[in-house]
Structure formats: structure tokens, C-alpha cells
């Protein structure tokens, strides 16, 4: 503690006033201890482990979800970029390392559909390729702060939701992935014109590293809201939560 106080006091601005320093050293020490005490109050004693603080933070996060939903525009589009801006190589990112990427036989893969829908038949990759396709070059932004520009193509999700007769008044769309990831989004974002079921990356079928055979691509949401390796979709009024969201990331995760 005293070492840290020493470092704070040793700021360059004070080095020029050595004679005065001796006179006020005691006061300085007091100030240093005060500000450090404040800092350790906020960090050292794990204030955020306090149940009441945790409850307040999670209440604020839910409030912020509402603010984010209010700020979300159904028509405002994320910036698009020329092909020359694409990040190469586009980074792999998941809650596990690259050596644990799970693959599936794309011929046998079927997308399950459930919840508030009228058509529950599973979809094959060939079925999805018969639907209208759309391409985008957009910026993927990770909650960690880094970002990368990539090119995804696939079925506009609003088209798919209409094909399965999804209840437009339902609040959530949930995703279960065969890498045991799961997440969920609001219906407004699900129907956003740039929300697509990506089947291709860079003009070729989605490779395993990027979520083969299908991921949901939303440039209006952070990376952890863009599920890869999707196995099942459900339309519901009960918030299905998510892998990271249940651990503390904000649920809306909007950009």
C-alpha cells in the first residue's frame, strides 16, 4: 500500500518543487492514502461481490436493455464497406479454442423450428439455399472492443420468419447451437433488414471456424449475440437468456 502511495506522489509535476515537498509531505501522504483508500474500497475488497451491489448492477443492466431497445431503429442500417476493407484473416472467436471447433455433416444437418410458429418442419441446408439470398460486408464488433470486417451471405431472417409463420408479436427468438452455445434476440432485431441467416462467408460456404453450416449475422448486435453452429430456433415470449448473457453480459447487446 505504501509503495503504491509513493508512486502516486512521485508524479513528475511535483519533482520540481523538492523544497516545498518536505513541508507538505505529510499532507501528501494523507491525500495519497485517501485516494488509494477510495480505489481499494472500489476494487480491493471486491465491492461487486456484495449481493446488493450485484443486484443493483443487474437491475441497471436490465434498465439499459430497455434503453437499448428504445434506441434501436428498425430501419437504420449498419455501415457497409467495400470488399477491399475486409479483414484478412477474419478472426475465429468462441468460448473455446480453435482445436475444439465442432463440425456436423452438412448433408444430415437439419434446422429445428419450434415455439410460436405455424410451420414446424425442420429445414435442410438445400431448403435454405432455395430461399432469397442477400449479401453484406459489415463490421463485426466484439464486446471485448476489437472489430473485424467480413462478408456474409444468406437468407434474410425476416423472410425465414415469415416462411415458418412466426408470430410477429412474439418478443424473443432463441437459438440453440450444437457447440452448446445459446443466445436470444428481440423480435425487432430479428426482423431488421440486415439480419441474415448466413450460409456463406466471402462467397464460399461458411467454414467450420465461422459457424458452419449456418450462423445468424446481425451487424446491429455485438459478436456474442451472433450465434454460430445453429441447430434450433424457437419463437417465444419467455426470454431464453444466453450463454454469456446469463453470466453478466447485457442481454440486448446492441450496436
Amino acid at each position: 500500500m505504501s509503495n503504491q502511495a509513493g508512486r502516486l506522489i512521485g508524479a513528475p509535476a511535483l519533482s520540481a518543487v523538492r523544497p516545498e515537498l518536505a513541508k507538505i509531505e505529510r499532507r501528501l501522504l494523507l491525500r495519497g492514502a485517501l485516494s488509494l483508500g477510495m480505489l481499494s474500497m472500489l476494487t480491493g475488497c471486491k465491492l461487486d461481490d456484495e449481493p446488493s451491489v450485484e443486484a443493483a448492477l443487474s437491475a441497471m443492466s436490465r434498465f439499459n436493455d430497455k434503453v437499448q431497445a428504445a434506441l434501436f431503429s428498425r430501419t437504420r442500417l449498419a455501415a457497409t464497406f467495400p470488399a477491399s476493407a475486409i479483414t484478412k484473416p477474419f478472426p475465429f472467436n468462441a468460448y473455446y479454442g480453435m482445436d475444439e471447433i465442432r463440425t456436423v455433416d452438412t448433408q444430415k444437418w437439419r434446422l429445428e423450428v419450434s415455439g410460436l410458429v405455424t410451420e414446424r418442419a425442420p429445414w435442410s441446408l438445400a431448403d435454405l439455399r432455395k430461399l432469397p439470398q442477400q449479401s453484406q460486408i459489415t463490421r463485426h464488433i466484439c464486446v471485448e472492443g476489437w472489430s473485424a470486417i467480413g462478408q456474409w451471405s444468406g437468407v434474410p431472417f425476416s423472410v425465414f420468419l415469415d416462411r415458418i409463420g412466426a408470430d410477429r408479436r412474439a418478443r424473443y427468438v432463441g437459438f440453440k447451437c450444437f457447440d452448446d452455445y445459446f443466445t436470444s434476440i428481440d423480435m425487432a432485431t430479428a426482423r431488421h433488414p440486415q439480419t441474415i441467416m448466413a450460409l456463406d462467408y466471402g462467397g464460399s460456404p461458411l467454414p467450420p471456424a465461422y459457424g458452419a453450416p449456418m450462423k445468424l449475422r446481425m451487424p446491429t448486435k455485438l459478436g456474442y449475440k451472433n450465434p454460430k453452429y445453429i441447430a434450433a430456433i424457437t419463437v417465444t415470449n419467455v426470454n431464453p437468456g444466453g450463454y454469456w448473457e446469463n453470466q453478466g453480459y447485457d442481454w440486448f447487446g446492441g450496436s
Binding site: Q4, L39, S40, L42, T43, G44, K46, D48, D49, A56, L57, S58, M60, S61, N64, V143, E144, W244, Q247, G248, Y249, D250
Partner: peptide
């Protein structure tokens, strides 16, 4: 350094950041 940060991990820090901003 960890002692100078708040939140314990990224998710906790984001919650602090977006609460304190108000």
C-alpha cells in the same frame, strides 16, 4: 494492473461502466 480496475472481469466492468455512466 488488476488492483486499479473495477468489475473483476469484462462483464462486471461493462455493468459498472454502463451504470456509472448514468
Amino acid at each position: 494492473p488488476a488492483w486499479a480496475t473495477l468489475g473483476g472481469w469484462l462483464g462486471g466492468a461493462l455493468n459498472w461502466h454502463f451504470a456509472a455512466m448514468w
